[in-house]
Design a protein around this nucleic acid. Structure first.
Length: 414
RNA sequence: GGAGGGGUUCCCGAGUGGCCAAAGGGAGCAGACUGUAAAUCUGCCGGCGACGCCUUCGCAGGUUCGAAUCCUGCCCCCUCCA
């Protein structure tokens, strides 16, 4: 990463990037992390079949620390996933079946291997189901139960939102399970630190506390800042859901576009927190204003797409983006839907059906509205009527559909 | 277990027999403006073969010409008492 610039220690770099939210003991953590003495873990609960941006941040942190000589442990929550973390939520998570959890874990593993180097002296991956699932209820209660104050637990920030809507005993136990994980890893994997999103703070403190009470030893915790936009909403979410790292769920092009479209006020923060660009370079961009920020957005989008999907995909996404929005010519990589000849009637397909077939509209009503409001273009020509038909010939060459200002799609005959 | 309150369209939240596909806000979508930004303004915002029809107000039944609104049973949540 650094190009012969002054080498900053990792802790200071994390601070400079705005990544650190809370730490239990700054001096001690600095010492461990800067000198490659940390063996740290980050937990990932398998709540979906793909990682998302929040996970990406955690993995990036892991990578940064790994590059600084520390040893990462990826903890997959095969056990905690069965319970469901209530932190910061207003409603209960839907309970996942063990099968779904296993499937999600497999998906996570594949994606993680692209970011983190696993191996004997590198990073290791563990699954907390391996020890949590075996626990005996009575033994467990007697073992760790006395060390948790329910009074304190209920006061924890992460449960605040749930005190009004209701918190089940199942979920209350999540903190104990996570604490137990840390306690376990501390003993069996010499894990002395836990990192995680800031919403995990209380859960993490539970672990350090348990280790101190049970073993009389110190362990440390550090949280990373949650990525919020200037309005205070979590980034990496769209109306349709999360921005996924799985290219089948969020294509590299869509992924690129998401970052290309962040608000002015959020670009630099994102570059600083999410990319591996040297801080000096980022500081220069800090002066940019107005439309110049578009350049920063392109850098952000390119860098992130490269990290997540590889250089080739990043370039393709950028080329397509430039073609679509900045007068370039190669728009080959826009999302494409193949139309089957069975879908044609009278040698063509109606614009309404086409919009639905391409997933640009969820219903025909919506598609009609789009056309009526003048928001649909075929090959850069506004569609004037909901009766408009796209002919077989057009489809053979493929047609470019534009919905609104920013959504492009291609349709061609299979 | 007892007493009270509550479950409404993506979210919040009005509605307590017909004027309700259901106020208002938010989110979202489209249009104008612009820099593929923000803010602002305008329109849309259950579905469909669409001046009509169908599905929706926790679930299942019932009363009624007619129910989100009334009755019965069930499920879930909150508060207080145990």
């Amino acid at each position: 990463m650094g190009k012969g610039v002054v080498l900053m220690n990792i802790y200071d770099e994390l601070v400079a990037r705005g990544l650190i939210a809370q730490v239990t003991d700054e001096e001690e953590i600095k010492d461990l992390v800067n000198n490659g003495k940390a063996t740290f873990y980050i937990g990932f609960d398998p709540t979906a079949d793909s990682l998302h941006v929040g996970h990406f941040m955690a993995l990036s942190l892991m990578k940064r620390l790994q590059m600084a000589g520390n040893k990462p442990i990826v903890l997959l929550g095969g056990g905690t996933g069965l319970i469901g973390d209530p932190s910061g939520r207003t409603d209960m998570r839907s309970m996942l079946t063990p099968e779904a959890i296993q499937y999600n874990i497999d998906c996570f593993k594949k994606q993680m291997e692209r970011f983190i180097e696993f191996g004997a002296d590198k990073a290791i991956m563990v699954n907390n189901a391996d020890w949590l699932a075996k626990l005996n209820y009575i033994e467990m209660l007697r073992d760790v139960g006395p060390h948790f104050s329910v009074n304190n637990m209920l006061r924890a920030e992460c449960y605040k939102q749930r005190m009004e809507k209701g918190l089940s005993f199942l979920e209350l136990n999540y903190m104990i399970m996570q604490s137990y994980d840390f306690y376990y890893l501390f003993q069996y994997h010499s894990c002395n630190m836990q990192f995680g999103g800031d919403d995990q703070w209380s859960n993490m403190l539970g672990g350090t506390e348990l280790i101190r009470r049970k073993l009389g030893k110190d362990a440390y915790a550090m949280t990373i800042t949650l990525l919020l936009n200037s309005e205070g909403n979590k980034m990496g979410k769209t109306a349709k859901g999360a921005v996924w790292l799985d290219p089948n769920k969020t294509s590299p092009f869509e992924f690129f576009q998401y970052w290309r479209n962040v608000g002015d006020n959020d670009v630099l923060k994102c570059i600083r927190m999410l990319t591996f660009l040297p801080l000096e370079q980022i500081d220069d961009m800090d002066q940019w204003e107005g439309s110049q920020l578009n350049e920063a957005k392109e850098i952000l989008a390119y860098e992130l797409t490269k990290l997540v999907h590889g250089e080739e995909e990043a370039q393709k996404a950028r080329t397509t983006s430039l073609a679509l929005f900045a007068g370039g010519t190669d728009d080959a990589n826009m999302p494409t839907t193949e139309i089957f000849s069975e879908q044609l009637t009278d040698g063509g397909i109606g614009i309404i059906d086409l919009l639905v077939a391409c997933g640009l509209s969820v219903s025909k009503s919506e598609a009609r509205r789009l056309v009526q409001q003048g928001g649909v273009f075929i090959n850069d020509t506004k569609v004037a009527s909901i009766e408009h038909k796209i002919t077989l010939e057009d489809l053979k060459n493929s047609v470019k559909i534009r919905k609104g200002k920013k959504t492009y799609h291609r349709a061609l005959l299979k």
